[in-house]
Simulated assay, not measured.
Amino acid sequence: MTLTTIDRINIAIDGPAGAGKSTVARKVAAELSYVYVDTGAMYRAVTLLAQRNGIGPEQAADLHKLIEGLDLKLQPTSTGQKIMLHNEDVTELIRSREVTTQVSHYAANEYVRQKLGDMQRELASHKGIVMDGRDIGTHVLPDAELKIFLTASVKERARRRHQELNDSNYVPLEQLEAEIAARDKLDETREIAPLIQAEDAVFLDTSHMTIEEVVSYIVKLGQSKLMGVSE
Rank of each mutant, 00 (worst) to 15 (best):
E191F: 00
F203S: 11
P172N: 08
D7Y: 11
E98R: 12
T39P: 11
E145H: 13
H208W: 08
I9D: 07
A124S: 14
A17R: 04
E213T: 02
S207Q: 06
L123W: 10
Q59P: 00
S96N: 13
M119T: 01
T47Y: 12
V130K: 01
A60D: 13
G56K: 13
G137C: 07
G40F: 05
L74V: 10
E231H: 15
G69A: 02
I148H: 07
A178T: 15
L116P: 01
L63K: 12
E199R: 13
M1P: 03
I13Q: 03
L32K: 05
K73G: 01
A144S: 11
Y43R: 07
E231N: 13
T47Q: 07
V140R: 01
G137N: 09
D200S: 12
G15I: 06
Y43W: 08
V28R: 04
F203W: 14
M84E: 15
H64V: 02
F149Q: 08
G128P: 05
A29E: 09
V214M: 07
S207N: 12
H139T: 10
R159C: 01
L48A: 00
R52K: 15
V99K: 04
G80C: 13
D132R: 08
R8D: 00
R183H: 14
L221F: 05
D187W: 01
Q51I: 11
K27E: 14
A12L: 08
S207L: 09
V28A: 03
V202D: 04
L165R: 11
P172D: 12
V24T: 15
R121Y: 05
L74T: 14
G128Y: 09
N53K: 12
R134Y: 11
D135Y: 03
L49V: 01
T151M: 03
L63P: 06
N10Q: 02
R161V: 05
H162D: 10
E213A: 15
E31L: 03
A108L: 04
Q114L: 14
S207V: 09
H139F: 05
S153E: 06
T47N: 09
E156P: 00
E177V: 14
T77C: 12
M1Y: 10
